[in-house]
Amino acid sequence: MSILSYKFMQEALLAGLLAGVACSLIGVFVVTMHLSFIGVSLSHAAFAGALFATWLGFEPLLGAILFSLAGAAAIGPLADRGEFNPDTPIGIIFSITMGLAFLFMGLLPGPKTQALELLWGSILTVTTADLWLLAVVTIIVTGLVVMFFKEIQAVIFHREMARAVGIPADAIFYSILFLTGATVTASLRSIGGLLIFNLILNPAAAAYQLTYSLKYMFFLAALFGVLSCWAGLGVSYILDVPSGAAIVLTSAVIFVLATIFSPKRKVKQWQENE
């Protein structure tokens, strides 16, 4: 009997497809706008939220959603009001939520397995509810990228210029941050807080090496994201290694190959020889 006929594997592949697309599309914003640590910051916010909810006796995912979205919503205004580069509030959110996570871990009696599961994730044990949440977020992220592509392109290029031509650049920027929070939260159970960072960054960074077209970059990033998840699952099955680690390493291999064969590197060599 083929491994593909097992329900858990079919669901894992579906989770890989959805998370691969959503995380990689978000990754294009992260790479082009230099927000590298937003993934790790918001996943730790989600972890703190999950511990907080567990401590109060609620479903951990509820707390994770709340904290992750609140963190994402705070980054933009904090950066703009404080006149910081967004990396600074991202770091501040990370440090605050790490502090809160340690506080709630100290306050929480007994095992913290449920909350810790959100940090590690398990693509092979996703539930139907997890898949629905992931599907809804993936459709929203993809739909918004398609609908507001021109506004997003202008904001990515230069926020002040976008504002000057009459685009509501701040609202678009804050929405991008909020979508990042939503994607991180939706991917927590299947991909895990620690792996999301990787799945957001590597496929988009690989795509960034290969094209000067933003449209192709979105497309290639989504393709690499899904490929990382599916090939990673295959490697995990064949070599009998943890699936999360296999997905991470597969996406890293794609990034290394894209960097080696990048046409952008050829341009650099040509400039040096001139």
Partner: peptide
């Protein structure tokens, strides 16, 4: 502004951005 040399946007697309507000 300082523009990233790898920014995936062409000169023609930048000029088109001027039309987006309209």
């Amino acid at each position: 502004p300082a523009i990233d040399p790898r920014m995936p946007v062409t000169a023609r697309e930048v000029v088109m951005m001027g039309r987006y507000g309209r």
